[in-house]
Design a protein around this nucleic acid. Structure first.
Lengths: 151, 151
DNA sequence: TATAAGCTGGACAAAGATGTCCGATTGAGT
DNA sequence: ACTCAATCGGACATCTTTGTCCAGCTTATA
């Protein structure tokens, strides 16, 4: 239901969120989140253009969140790379229908709106704080090495 | 959020639902629903293989719903052409995580599940019965000709 | 100032989704 | 039997998404 690019973007910001006031190199993020390095580079550029992250160029540079994880909603991330499109007029191309969708498209748009809201009101910060029963989740390290990514 | 193919499939079954016990030729459905004839043919084949519709070959043939609109959920139609994929294990490919998703993927899967349910419990019949304030919606005919498609 | 680390952006390749074309097959009607 | 209307299904064209490669630019550090 969500594009691969969206998934990548969300993984990336989740990785950045760990210590968000420091730049992270694309290569590091890619290793952490197990995605193709060069494709991630493109995704980061998109996030940068959208203002979700900022780029620090040059040596010791990288990307870092533009604001604290608590202020960043998942929807902002999603819309930065692959905007959720609401159905705002009849897809059959009929003029004069304005916001009056037929029952089918009304139903579809309702679902889209609910999804949009679910992500609009979820911040990256909430994800990091969430104290599920099985905490160290996606991270790679099984034993006790390094920090758990909590993706 | 939904593929073009899903949109087409839903339009098609909505068109069929009008009088579902009679076969409708692909060409007629395509005109009604304003989509490419030959692509619709492929979509109908998929719906047929999934058992959502049945094909009547030969002259005076066409496609008709396999069962009454009241018994057909939108989810069945969607899954027939472009299945909604739940996130059932860590997309990072970590073994040993079973159903324990990290907060991010838990959140994503929740949204997918909600969407799935919204369509699982909506039947085609409900859409046709729904008495919105602006009834004749997507149909093409503005004046008083023919039946309103109520797509 | 030289070097290395890192982002930038263009070009391109591969794969999937969408759209088109057409001959083969089926079955009703004459 | 023959014809016509219709699905069936393979081949192919096009577009978008995803993925790869690389030369150039920017900046910290020695």
């Amino acid at each position: 239901m969500f594009s691969h690019t969206v998934e990548y973007a969300l993984r990336a910001v989740a990785a950045l969120a760990e210590d968000w006031e420091r730049p992270h190199a694309v290569q590091k993020i890619a290793e952490r989140t197990k995605m193709p390095n060069d494709y991630l580079a493109k995704v980061m550029q998109a996030l940068c253009r959208a203002g979700v992250v900022k780029a620090i160029r040059g040596r010791h540079g990288g990307y870092q969140l533009a604001q604290s994880p608590e202020k960043l909603s998942l929807l902002e991330v999603i819309n930065a790379v692959d905007p959720i499109k609401r159905i705002d007029r009849c897809p059959l191309g009929l003029a004069g229908h304005g916001s009056n969708l037929c029952p089918l498209h009304r139903r579809l748009d309702d679902a889209i709106r609910e999804t949009e809201n679910a992500f609009r009101f979820t911040t990256l910060g909430e994800l990091l704080q969430s104290t599920g029963p099985v905490r160290p989740l996606c991270p790679i390290e099984p034993a006790g090495s390094l920090i758990n990514v909590a993706l």
